[in-house]
């Protein structure tokens, strides 16, 4: 190791400027959405507890869930849910040892994102229509 500052050596990725591959972004989003979905889950159980308690309490919970705040939380949670769902399916397939290559995982990432968009639209459409 005479010259340790040899500039021709490859550098490890600089995190500030390194553009993460799609799969890396989805991996991080999988964790974030998984933890964040707990927030919607708590709201849903609270809504059910209110439903079990009585009409007055239910009206309060229902009003919170359908307020601008509730709509914002549930819209974001719907996107997060279907992203986590699609990515989870990819992980289950990977666990069988198949579709692990770069091309295959990029393709499944795009299919997963398309699934997320379609299921989000369907879910919101049901919520608004129903």
């Amino acid at each position: 190791m005479a010259n340790v500052s040899n500039e021709t050596r490859p550098l490890s990725p600089h995190l500030q400027v390194y553009r993460l591959p799609l799969n890396a972004k989805l991996s991080i989003l999988h964790r974030i959405t998984g933890v964040a979905l707990a927030f919607a889950a708590i709201l849903i159980v609270w809504y059910f507890l209110a439903l079990a308690t009585g009409p007055e309490y239910f009206e309060t919970a229902s009003a919170v869930l359908t307020s601008w705040f509730g709509i914002l939380v549930f819209t974001l949670s719907t996107v997060a849910l279907w992203l986590h769902f699609a990515n989870g399916v990819r992980h289950l397939v990977w666990d069988t040892g198949s579709h692990l290559g770069q091309k295959a995982s990029n393709r499944s990432a795009m299919i997963g994102l398309a699934f997320m968009v379609v299921m989000t639209i369907i879910t919101l459409w049901i919520a608004i229509g129903g």
């Binding site: 009409p55 229902s62 359908t66 849910l81 879910t123 129903g130």
Partner: peptide, 21 residues
């Protein structure tokens, strides 16, 4: 298990959300 339970719970929940007591 959630592959089945998520659509079975979430879609009816979305349908009912906003309805009366």
């Amino acid at each position: 298990a959630l592959l089945f339970l998520v659509p079975l719970f979430v879609l009816p929940f979305a349908y009912n959300l906003g309805d009366g007591y």
